[in-house]
């Protein structure tokens, strides 16, 4: 059962990811990517990481991709103005990515094992558990992420500002 759900989701996510890459219109790409994100959220649920799944939806589907759509729509970029890269270039890209995949999988194949597989704490993905870890062990990175956000915010505002002078 679980395996079947996993495989279904996996197949859908790979297909939609490919469609995302190959879609001519950027808006379609965005929508395919959102579908991919939903399947990934499904995988999180399968992994009993519900909190993660919901946050994933909120952040990626709910915020980031909306931003993408926004920009696409504001700039009205859907016209197929994107000049396609040459076939050779595409082939090169495919070979590069393919060889990356083959190398990675080949190098890992057969040696994938998880060190702590004997421990079993199915509650690990629940929000209480995550909260404890986040606010004890990982509180420093949590604070540091604040700097990151502040910087990104200032940066985004700075970039987005229209020039006041002239």
């Amino acid at each position: 059962m679980t395996l079947a759900i996993f495989l279904t989701l996996a197949v859908i996510s790979v297909i939609t990811a490919l469609l995302m890459v190959f879609a001519k219109s950027p808006v379609h790409s965005v929508l395919y990517l959102i579908l991919t994100f939903f399947t990934i959220a499904g995988q999180y649920v399968l992994l009993n990481a519900q909190f993660l799944a919901v946050v994933h939806i909120i952040v990626y589907a709910g915020a980031i991709m909306v931003l993408f759509l926004f920009v696409l729509m504001l700039l009205n970029l859907n016209k197929d103005t994107e000049p396609q890269k040459s076939a050779g270039w595409k082939l090169a890209g495919a070979i590069a990515a393919g060889s990356l995949l083959v190398t990675m999988v080949g190098a890992m194949h057969g040696s994938i094992q998880i060190a702590g597989a004997e421990q079993s704490n199915p509650q690990v993905g629940l929000v209480e558990n995550l909260g404890k870890v986040l606010f004890t062990d990982f509180v420093v990175p949590f604070e540091i992420a604040g700097i990151l956000f502040l910087a990104a915010m200032v940066g985004a505002v700075l970039v987005g500002k229209k020039d006041l002078k002239v």
Partner: peptide
């Protein structure tokens, strides 16, 4: 869901898509 309120926030954030896609 033990994260019910987040679920609602998440879904309400998805509501945007219908509007955006429709409008666009």
């Amino acid at each position: 869901l033990n994260i019910g309120i987040l679920y609602i926030l998440g879904l309400s954030s998805l509501g945007v898509y219908g509007i955006m896609i429709g409008g666009w």
